[in-house]
Simulated assay, not measured.
Amino acid sequence: MMNQPDNNKNFLCVFIDQLWGLHGEVIVIFPVTVLTIITNSINNNRFIWLDYASITLLVSYLLYVIIDTMKIVYITIYNVSSGYSICLGKKSNYFKDSVRKQRNVLKRNKVDLFLIEKEFKIIDIDWQYYDEPIRETKSWQDSVENISDHFFRYAKRIPIETKLHLFTIAQPAVLIGVGYAIGKERDWVVYHYCDSTSSYVMAPNLKGTQSRSSVKKIKFNEKIINEYGDITVILSFTSASRIPFPDITNNKVEVFPKGRNKYIEIEDMSQISYEINEVLTRYTMEGRTIHLFPGLPCTLAFILGKLLHENSNIIIYNPNDTEPVWERVIDIQNLDI
Rank of each mutant, 00 (worst) to 15 (best):
V279Y: 03
I276A: 00
I182D: 01
G305F: 03
Y274G: 00
I225M: 12
S213N: 13
R212Y: 09
Q210D: 06
P294L: 02
Q210S: 10
S236R: 06
L280G: 04
K184G: 02
V178F: 03
A240Y: 07
T197L: 07
L308K: 03
S312W: 02
E278Y: 09
C194F: 04
G183V: 05
L304K: 11
W188N: 01
V253E: 00
I272Y: 05
M285P: 15
I243L: 08
G179N: 12
K258G: 01
L280W: 04
F256L: 09
S211I: 02
P246K: 09
Y228E: 04
G305Y: 02
E278S: 15
T289V: 10
E275W: 07
T284E: 08
I231M: 14
K252L: 14
R242A: 10
S198V: 04
Y283H: 11
V190S: 00
G295P: 12
E222V: 08
M202A: 14
S199T: 06
T289I: 09
E227M: 11
K252E: 13
I290A: 12
E222H: 04
V279K: 04
L280A: 08
T249G: 03
I266H: 01
N205H: 11
N311A: 09
R186Q: 13
L235K: 07
E227A: 14
E275L: 07
M269A: 04
A203D: 06
K258N: 08
K219N: 13
F245G: 02
V255C: 13
S198E: 10
D230R: 12
Y274P: 00
P294W: 01
T238K: 13
I266N: 03
G305A: 07
R186W: 06
I182M: 04
A203V: 15
I290F: 10
Q171M: 15
D247M: 15
R242D: 15
I290W: 09
T299V: 05
L292A: 01
G208I: 07
S241E: 08
E265F: 12
I231Y: 12
R260T: 13
T281H: 10
S236D: 15
S241V: 07
N221I: 08
W188L: 11
N313W: 06
N221Q: 12
D187W: 08
P246M: 04
Q210F: 06
T232M: 10
A301D: 04
N251A: 07
